[in-house]
Simulated assay, not measured.
Amino acid sequence: MKVVGFAGYSGAGKTTLIEQVIAALRARGLRVSVIKHAHHRFDIDRPGKDSFRHREAGAVEVLIASRHRLALMREFERETELSVHQLIARLDAGVDWVLVEGFRGSDLSKIEVWRAPTGHAVLYPHDEHVIAVATDDAARLPQPAGRPVLDLNRGAAVADWLIDQGERLAYAAPAQ
């Protein structure tokens, strides 16, 4: 499997770019998984549903399965922050690509997603793991990127670039 992160600040366009990259990779017959980091509490279940009621009753894990999908919800009994590598280890090892949204501070190879209007600083001058910058206005980068600059609005071209970088992005879990 190949793994790449998409890092940047809120509002830069990470999710939109990832959606386009997923579609482009799938169009090439590749299997894609995504890991999304959430900085806040979230819920994928709805009040009143059986699975929600089971969790509310105190179940530590609720697994819902049908012929079409499987969802596992696990309640942490105390706050737990899993590393991106721990999360990757829980995915289907048979996928071709894992796209990781967030985890800015991770040691994964990543594409920085940056838009000038957000007013956020760039990550690439201080992060050796940024292998490319995706932006909608390369001329407004505050300093030379020193790495490839990709068009944020051309997800298929970003997917092509990733495929060309495939060997470099082959995942090897860190030694424990």
Rank of each mutant, 00 (worst) to 15 (best):
2 K>I: 07
3 V>F: 08
3 V>L: 12
4 V>E: 04
6 F>S: 00
7 A>V: 02
8 G>M: 05
9 Y>V: 10
9 Y>S: 14
11 G>I: 02
11 G>M: 02
14 K>E: 00
16 T>F: 15
17 L>Q: 00
20 Q>F: 15
20 Q>G: 14
21 V>L: 11
22 I>E: 10
24 A>M: 07
27 A>W: 07
28 R>A: 15
29 G>R: 11
30 L>T: 05
31 R>T: 04
34 V>F: 09
34 V>P: 01
35 I>R: 08
37 H>A: 11
42 F>K: 12
44 I>S: 06
44 I>H: 03
46 R>W: 15
47 P>H: 03
47 P>V: 09
50 D>N: 03
51 S>T: 06
51 S>R: 09
51 S>D: 06
53 R>I: 05
53 R>E: 14
56 E>T: 11
57 A>G: 10
58 G>Y: 11
59 A>G: 09
61 E>R: 12
63 L>V: 12
64 I>A: 15
64 I>N: 06
64 I>P: 03
65 A>K: 13
65 A>N: 07
65 A>S: 12
65 A>P: 00
65 A>F: 14
65 A>E: 09
67 R>M: 14
68 H>A: 12
70 L>H: 13
71 A>S: 12
73 M>I: 14
73 M>P: 00
80 T>F: 15
82 L>R: 08
83 S>C: 12
84 V>H: 03
84 V>Q: 01
87 L>S: 05
87 L>W: 13
88 I>P: 01
91 L>S: 02
93 A>C: 09
95 V>N: 05
95 V>I: 12
96 D>Y: 10
97 W>V: 01
97 W>G: 01
99 L>W: 06
100 V>F: 13
101 E>R: 03
102 G>P: 00
103 F>Q: 01
103 F>T: 01
104 R>L: 04
104 R>I: 04
107 D>I: 06
108 L>C: 01
112 E>V: 02
113 V>D: 04
113 V>Q: 06
115 R>D: 07
115 R>M: 15
115 R>T: 08
117 P>C: 09
118 T>H: 06
118 T>G: 10
120 H>G: 08
121 A>F: 14
122 V>T: 00
122 V>Y: 06
123 L>M: 09
124 Y>Q: 03
126 H>C: 14
128 E>M: 14
128 E>H: 15
128 E>K: 08
130 V>A: 08
131 I>M: 13
132 A>Q: 05
133 V>R: 01
134 A>T: 02
135 T>G: 10
137 D>M: 02
139 A>P: 00
139 A>H: 09
139 A>S: 11
139 A>W: 09
140 R>M: 06
140 R>D: 03
143 Q>M: 15
144 P>E: 06
145 A>F: 09
146 G>S: 08
149 V>T: 04
154 R>H: 14
155 G>Y: 02
155 G>I: 05
156 A>Q: 13
157 A>V: 03
159 A>F: 07
159 A>V: 04
162 L>G: 01
164 D>Q: 09
164 D>N: 04
165 Q>G: 02
165 Q>R: 12
165 Q>T: 05
165 Q>S: 08
169 L>Q: 05
169 L>A: 07
171 Y>D: 02
171 Y>K: 04
172 A>S: 12
175 A>T: 08
175 A>H: 11
176 Q>R: 13
